[in-house]
Design a protein around this nucleic acid. Structure first.
Lengths: 156, 156
DNA sequence: CTGGTAGGTTGGAAAATCCAACCCTCTTCT
DNA sequence: AGAAGAGGGTTGGATTTTCCAACCTACCAG
C-alpha cells in the first residue's frame, strides 16, 4: 500500500489503509458472525492461508481484532472483534444492503440480518443531530486542510 | 480478483468485488464531491494514471459511474456517480466516521460534512422498520444458503 | 511553431497474491 | 505403540497487479 504523492488527507483513505486490502473486511464479517477460527476463516472467505495470516496480524496490530485463547492444551486461538472492530459493522451493513439491492433479487439474498424489532434489517444512515435520513443533496463538504477544494454541487 | 474455492455467498463480498479494489472507493469519494475529471482524480487520490483508467472503466461497466461529455472540442469527459453510485455514499460516510473517531482527534479532521440541519454530520445506522440505532447485539444472522452456519452470539 | 492542458496508453521493474506442500503440536482411534 | 486427524500456521516459487516514467493524441493560446 504505497501512499502515492500527496493525496487529499481523508479519513476514508486512512480507514481503507487499515481495512481496505483484499479480504480484510470479509475477515471482519466472519469474526462479527462469531466464526473466528483460522480454518473457518479460510473456508468461509476462500482466502489463501498465508494471506489470511498477514491480514489477521495487521488487523490485530490495528486494534480491530484480538486473538483469544479458547483452549489451553492444545493451544487454540480464536479471533474476535474489539470495540473498534464492532464499530466497523455499519460499513459491512451498508455494503451488504447495497449488494442486496443492486446485485440480487429479493428472493436471492444469501443472508438476512434480523433486527431485534422482529423485521429483516434494512439499514438507513441518519444524522445523529436531527434524526433525518442523510441524502446526498443535504450534505456540504467542508475541507479543513488548505488547498483541497471541492467543486461540485456538494461544495463548501 | 480470483474468487477462490467455494466461499460463503454474500452481498458484502459481491459488492467488494466491484468497489473493493485499491482506489475504487476513493474514486467514488472524489466523484461524489464533484471532482470527476481525470487529472483531478489523479491529484486528489494519488493514484497512478493507468490504474485510475482501469478503475474508471470498471466502475462505469458496473453502472456506478457515468462518463459525461462536458466539452465538445476539445473532447473532455467527466465522471459522475449514477444513482447506484450515490447509494454507495453511506459506505463512505461510515468509513469516514470510523476514521474520524479512531484515527484522529476532534481538532484534526481533514474534512467535515455539514448536514442540512446545520450540524456536522455524525452518521448513525438505524433500522428502517423501527427507527432504532442498530447495535451488534440486536442482530441475528440468518444464512439462507444451506451449509453456511454462524456460530457466535449473533447466530440464528 | 512552441508550449500547455486534458485524457489517456505503453513497457518494464517492483510488489502482492496464489497455491501446494510442509511443519508442529496435540488428541483420538485401533 | 503407531497412524491418522485437526488446528494453526509457514515456506518457496509461479502468477498477477501495481507502480512509475515516458510517451501519445487532440486541441488551444501566444
Amino acid at each position: 500500500m504505497a501512499a502515492s504523492k500527496d493525496p487529499r488527507p481523508c479519513s476514508i483513505a486512512d480507514t481503507l489503509a487499515l481495512v481496505g486490502e483484499k479480504y480484510s473486511l470479509l475477515v471482519l464479517r466472519e469474526v462479527c458472525l462469531g466464526n473466528g477460527r483460522f480454518d473457518q476463516l479460510v473456508r468461509n472467505i476462500g482466502t489463501p492461508r498465508d494471506i489470511l495470516a498477514t491480514r489477521l496480524r495487521r488487523l490485530v496490530d490495528a486494534g480491530i481484532l484480538t486473538k483469544q485463547l479458547y483452549s489451553e492444551r492444545p493451544q487454540r486461538f480464536e479471533y474476535r472483534p474489539t470495540q473498534a472492530g464492532l464499530e466497523l459493522e455499519p460499513v459491512l451493513m451498508t455494503l451488504m444492503a447495497w449488494g442486496d439491492r443492486h446485485l440480487r433479487t429479493d428472493s436471492d439474498r444469501p443472508m438476512v440480518l434480523e433486527h431485534s424489532c422482529g423485521r429483516a434489517l434494512a439499514p438507513a444512515v441518519t444524522c445523529r443531530a436531527c434524526g433525518d435520513e442523510v441524502r446526498h443533496e443535504d450534505l456540504t463538504a467542508r475541507p479543513q486542510a488548505p488547498g483541497w477544494t471541492v467543486t461540485g454541487p456538494t461544495a463548501a
